[in-house]
Design a protein around this nucleic acid. Structure first.
Length: 776
DNA sequence: GAGTTTGAAACT
DNA sequence: CAGTTTCAAACTC
């Protein structure tokens, strides 16, 4: 394999060959790579975080970051341990299956989660149990694994074997690598060929480039760390032309470095995987077994999440490293399904191409899937029809921002999120807010949470099998709330009654809806309906809860106010629930009632309409507005800005940093899958509040509960923005809310707390467009 | 699991 | 804009 490819490659190869490392590797066993790896390891932990963010969806990324830190630390500290453990784990297929399933979901999420999970997953994958047919799953897991220290093993059956042996033999990474290399000497070489193949294809789209590049780098990496670097350098040079690529590359190194820790393992495995896939189907089969089991599970679950095997496998093998893989994987997922079966054996190159193609197809479907992957439900947000429509443009911007920041962005509006996810192929995976809860465990949990997500992932068709059952299961399994989906019977899921539809997400497995038209299949209908609804009420699909979290912190007022800052877009109209139950949208959204609310006997724990804050949360609404006014007086400048913002939100936004965040934020919630109600969105402060809620859908789902608990009341910067935008603009006029809205707007706009909000407005506006745009 | 309550969404 | 109806979630049993 290798030799022929190399020949083809020609120049590129020659470069690599030039490097002493490469030559050495070629002549010798993989052992050398290991050394390089060690050096890299130190770097990995640090760099690692950033790359993932880029690929991962905003939601995910946010969560991830927090997780990452932890995970990385853990990994660093216990790298060796992990590896040894992994080896053990590999043996156990059980965990592997479960993990792999999670991993799929996680794929969107990324490294953060992946890192934690990875070890386990890797181990699981490694064991590779086997079914050649479904190699895809394994690859995915592997990919994730790669990201994680443990991951490496994942690759081919041979690798798995080697890994197994290694696990038994030596705990150290080095041993791992060496063995892998020895067993699969060709693998080391393989990477190069892969590079060559990739390049030609790359010509296609930037996205593809990124994926390819990543893959290529991975491949190179596999051979040896040194080689990686050299390859990277080469790659960068060659690809620099595309900005995206350059950015990507910059990150890639990190990823590679990060991998470096694990590198030893990873490289061998990666190389092996490719070879195995292409050349050694039998080996693949071994690896695949686990994957298949997972796939089967996913399928049974109705999960579309799990990509088809063939394509996935190829891609996976290529991409192993967390970030890229993710992208590819997600994309792959959609496309894979179709293609995988057909050409499991296709060469890597073909796989790549197919992947690209698939991606386009997947866009529509992916969102949902991604969501599922992400964690879930949140992702509800994720499978937005809007996304598909959306706008690629938006996503690009998002990506850029993400990349630059290195964090995930919160999507401004569901539409944006979706669009971004689709285009990137990154699934917005709302990482479960839980992230915190258990890195190790959680790593998987998120996936579990994702169970819903899985639902997302699941193909639409699957959903219907037994929606109620699934739904309940999901609910029970994960957060009951989080997993939930709609249960529409008469609305066909084409009205705002439908949470999924309202959230801009396609209905998926967990849904128990009847006669559902909110599916990719009926995209046209969905879009048309959306348009109609939006025509009546531009803000109809905007988050119901707007959060000025940004404003709060920035303002420096009491942090406590944060909750108060968030407000329901329209305000509730509760008469009997006293705003103490989820019937109340304000309460459900974790925000206090505001002036805009027409509720009677308001006792909202998050903040009473009166301004009193029963729970301890400060009174939000009116009082806040007043306070805000005071603040304004104090800060004439801010005031002016705010006013300007209100009047000219756009301009303000542009100037303010918030803008960036906002655009991203809005969608976040939607992704959740089913936040309280689709419309409720948490705003995410650019800074990273997310953690608490933002987390995508999971956050949403979870968020609700949290909301119940007063404090984190949603921080939804984004929403507020949207709302503001809505409110300030004429938008609301159309909507029934308009009545109420006026007051709320006043609150936001006038209220000091909202000062930050001013900026939000602008962002929010943009998000909507994205949604509508798709309809075009 | 079925039925009731609730309030938003949709309609008039 | 107000009132009514429809709808599905939230809640209760």
């Amino acid at each position: 394999m290798d030799t022929p490819e190399r020949n083809q490659i020609g120049t590129p190869i020659s470069k690599f060959e030039d490097s002493p490392v490469f030559n050495f590797i070629n002549s010798l066993s993989p052992i050398k790579p290991v050394k390089s790896v060690h050096s890299i390891q130190t770097i990995n932990s640090l760099s690692f975080s950033s790359p993932p963010s880029v690929f991962t969806s905003p939601h995910v990324s946010c969560h991830r970051e927090s997780r990452f830190l932890r995970s990385h630390n853990v990994l660093d500290a216990s790298k060796h341990q992990v590896l040894s453990e992994d080896g053990k784990k590999f043996c156990s297929s059980e965990e592997a299956l479960a993990d792999s399933a999670h991993a799929y979901h996680n794929s969107s999420e990324p490294q953060g989660n992946a890192d934690q999970r990875i070890p386990l997953e890797d181990s699981t994958t490694d064991p590779s149990n086997e079914q050649p047919e479904f190699p895809i799953e394994l690859p995915q897991t592997l990919k994730y694994d790669c990201g994680s220290p443990a991951c490496d093993p994942p690759t081919g059956g041979d690798e798995t074997n080697s890994l197994m042996d290694l696990s038994g033999k030596a705990a150290s990474d080095v041993t791992y690598v060496d063995e892998a290399c020895e067993q699969n000497p060709p693998e080391t070489e393989v990477p190069l060929p892969g590079m060559c193949q990739i390049e030609p294809r790359i010509g296609g789209s930037e996205c593809d480039w990124d994926g390819l590049l990543a893959d290529a780098t991975d491949l190179l990496i596999f051979n040896s760390p040194n080689e990686r670097e050299t390859l990277k350098g080469l790659m960068q040079k060659s690809f620099d032309p595309s900005g995206s690529f350059s950015n990507f590359m910059s990150q890639l190194p990190q990823t590679t470095l990060s991998h470096g820790e694990k590198m030893p393992i990873v490289d061998p495995a990666a190389s092996g995987s490719e070879h195995e896939i292409e050349d050694h189907p039998s080996q693949q089969g071994e690896v695949i077994e686990n994957d298949q089991a997972q796939d089967n599970l996913a399928n049974t679950a109705g999960m579309g999440c799990y990509p088809n095997n063939t394509l996935n496998n190829q891609l996976v093998s290529i991409t192993r490293h967390g970030i890229r893989r993710r992208c590819l994987d997600f994309e792959m997922v959609g496309g894979r399904r179709k293609n995988t079966n057909d050409g499991s054996n296709n060469s890597s190159s073909s796989a790549l191409q197919s992947d690209e193609r698939n991606v386009a197809f997947d866009k529509q479907l992916l969102p949902a899937k991604r969501n599922g992957n992400s964690q879930r439900c949140t992702l509800p947000g994720i499978g937005l029809h809007l996304n598909a429509l959306g706008g690629i443009k938006d996503y690009k911007s998002l990506n850029i921002e993400n990349i630059s920041s290195g964090r995930q962005l919160s999507l401004p509006s569901p539409a944006l999120q979706q669009s971004s996810s689709q285009e990137h192929s990154l699934a917005l995976v709302p990482v479960p807010a839980e992230g915190d809860s258990g890195l190790p465990d959680n790593g998987f949990q998120p996936a579990e949470d994702c169970s819903q997500p899985s639902g997302y992932v699941v193909d639409e068709d699957f959903n219907h099998n037994s929606p109620k059952k699934k739904r309940r299961k999901l609910e029970s399994a994960g957060d009951g709330e989080s997993c939930k989906r709609c249960n529409c019977k008469k609305s066909k899921c084409l009205k705002l009654y439908c949470e999924c539809f309202a959230a801009g997400v396609y209905c998926i497995e967990p849904c128990s809806c009847q006669d559902c038209f909110n599916k990719p299949i009926h995209e046209d209908t969905v879009l048309a309906t959306r348009k109609q609804i939006e025509s009546r009420n531009p803000l109809a699909f905007a988050p119901k809860v707007i959060r000025s979290s940004d404003s709060v912190p920035e303002i420096g007022d009491d942090p406590n106010k944060t909750p108060a800052s968030a407000r329901h877009k329209r305000g509730c109209n509760c008469k009997k629930s006293n705003c103490l139950k989820k019937y109340c949208e304000c309460y459900q959204g974790g925000v206090g009632c505001s002036i805009s609310c027409r509720c009677e006997g308001c006792k909202n724990g998050y903040g009473r309409k009166d301004g009193s804050a029963p729970i301890g949360i400060e009174a939000e609404p009116e009082e806040e507005t007043e306070s805000s006014e005071k603040a304004v007086a104090e800060k004439s400048l801010q005031k002016s800005e705010i006013q300007n913002n209100e009047e000219h939100p756009e301009s303000t936004l542009a100037t303010t940093p918030l803008r960036i965040c906002r655009p991203l934020l809005p969608l976040s919630f939607s992704s959740k899958g089913k936040p309280p109600r689709s419309s409720f969105i948490t705003t995410i402060p650019a800074s990273g509040l997310y953690a608490s809620q933002k987390l995508g859908k999971p956050s949403i789902l979870r968020s609700q509960p949290k909301f119940e608990k007063p404090f984190k009341p949603v921080s939804n910067d984004e929403m507020p923005e949207v709302l503001r935008g809505d409110g300030s603009p004429s938008v609301k006029t159309s909507s029934p809310n308009g009545k109420r809205i006026s007051s709320p707007n006043c609150e936001f706009g006038s209220s000091p707390t909202r000062r930050s909000g001013r900026k939000l407005i602008l962002q929010s506006i943009p998000s909507f467009p994205s949604l509508t745009a798709p309809h075009l």
